[in-house]
Design a protein around this nucleic acid. Structure first.
Lengths: 151, 151
DNA sequence: CTTTATTCGTTGCATATGCAATGAAGTCAA
DNA sequence: TTGACTTCATTGCATATGCAACGAATAAAG
């Protein structure tokens, strides 16, 4: 009797990285559809904008590290945002290799619409999850900490 | 005094979809590095393999739905996996539009290595998170359910 | 000071991706 | 049976992406 060497019964649907990916993808895209339609902004561009709005004068390097994005991706997003008039690039006079990304006035106005949109989406998530939100957050918190510093 | 219209203080680092994305990306890539180096398999290809290993005779459509992947992505992954000799494509005789994807013997052997790798990575995650794993799972569970069926 | 290494941001290039269009197969109803 | 729709998988094409290479600026050695 030929042993078909039965494979382990591994179900993708119970694989944590996969579950995280699905949750991330669906939630991100749900919000992205909103601002993409209204403002023609991609997800990477949105992330750069949000970071710059939060931390004044960010460099590409800062964003790469903080926002977990390839620097070339950051660079291209910043370039496009500048060409549309939302961002201004200037040189850091202290270290002239670094860029200082900042919101233009038009960028400020954009973020005045975008940020409340994001905040209400976040509120919606918390409301939908109810008590489970805190649990999700606890789990995510320790997971992210481990990923940051694998002790 | 010109009102700079201070923007809402929104921190990307506390935005749930973003946190999920980072967790998903880092955990997925950590495992992917392992099997990419050893077997030259991409993440989409890995997902297709895992699904086919779990559910015999999957069609592209099945995978698209179950694995949350664009059908063109599934199609290309399947095509490459077939060309490498891990997968076999045959026609579903009941409905000849459908494909029947199945593992070749070589594919079985591959999965006999890949699945334990994935399982031990999952075990590692659960071990690392300890008690927080159950919390993460509870949160993820209700979130995924909501995303599936937004009541 | 030069010379040698690093760091930062951009870009070239090959690959990956999403979306729309296509062709083949199947369903349904007249 | 024929003809209008629908479903499935593949593919063409435009865009997005990752990675390596580059030029400019700085830091570190000698």
């Amino acid at each position: 009797m030929t042993d078909t060497s039965a494979l382990p019964d591994f179900d993708l649907m119970r694989f944590t990285p996969y579950r995280l990916a699905v949750a991330a993808q669906k939630t991100s895209e749900a919000l992205a559809r909103q601002y993409r339609a209204r403002f023609d902004i991609s997800i990477p561009e949105w992330r750069v904008l949000v970071h710059v709005a939060h931390a004044k004068d960010a460099s590409v390097r800062d964003i790469e590290a903080q926002v977990v994005m390839e620097k070339s991706k950051v660079s291209r997003a910043a370039t496009r945002l500048e060409s549309i008039g939302y961002l201004k690039k200037s040189v850091n006079e202290g270290d002239r290799r670094l860029l200082r990304l900042s919101l233009t006035e038009k960028g400020q106005e954009l973020m005045a619409e975008l940020l409340p949109l994001a905040q209400s989406y976040q509120d919606e998530i918390e409301k939908q999850l109810g008590a489970d939100f805190a649990k999700l957050e606890e789990g995510l918190q320790t997971m992210l900490a481990r990923l940051e510093d694998p002790s």
